[in-house]
Simulated assay, not measured.
Amino acid sequence: MMAMKSYIVLVYILCLSAGIKSQNLKVTEINSADFYKNHANLLTNEKVKILDGRTDSMYQIQHIYGAINIDVDLCNASERLKQEATTPVVVVYCTTNRRSSDMVKILSTFYQGKVYLISDGLRGWSNNDLPLFQSSSTMSMQEE
């Protein structure tokens, strides 16, 4: 019985320490136009990771140059984020904001760097005519 109480106390302490870590996460929620206007240099900085939280098929159609695809809805998303979020700054986005908000929640459990959350997502990025990688099949469909 004493071992069980010790285990419960240990789990409680670990949960508290995880909560303390999550308070260290610095998140800046910013729309795509303001991000590009003020922080476009981050898109080519080797100390910054750009993380796309959408499905692989969505990513293949179009994404921000240099982005790494991590489908946040898959069961291995947390492990993938731990592998990729190794730089002092990460930029997260999805189509609108649901998946990127989920990425921030996961990041808050271990990451202590700076996070830029593109609040209007790839939809806003595209609507603002900001540079995107587009697959050739998407480009040819647009030309028709």
Rank of each mutant, 00 (worst) to 15 (best):
D71A: 00
V11Y: 03
L14T: 11
V48P: 15
S17R: 07
T96S: 13
A3R: 03
R54E: 14
L107G: 06
Y12A: 15
R123F: 05
G121Y: 10
V89E: 15
L43K: 07
S32W: 05
E144M: 09
V92K: 04
R99D: 12
A40Q: 14
R99I: 02
Q142L: 09
S17A: 09
D120G: 01
P131D: 00
L117C: 06
D56E: 08
V91D: 08
S6D: 12
N127K: 10
Y93S: 10
E144K: 08
T138Y: 06
E84M: 07
G124P: 10
F110C: 04
L130Y: 09
N128E: 10
I118R: 01
S135Y: 02
E79Y: 02
N24K: 11
I50W: 00
A3V: 10
W125V: 01
A77V: 03
S140V: 08
I30S: 07
K26A: 08
M103V: 00
G121M: 06
G19C: 07
L25E: 13
Y59T: 11
K114N: 10
I13Q: 04
L81Y: 02
A67L: 08
T138Q: 15
K5Y: 07
K114A: 09
F35R: 01
Q134M: 10
Y12H: 14
Y111R: 04
S78L: 11
R123S: 09
Q112D: 05
F110T: 03
D73L: 12
Y116N: 13
P88S: 05
R80F: 07
A67Y: 02
V48N: 04
V104P: 13
Y59V: 04
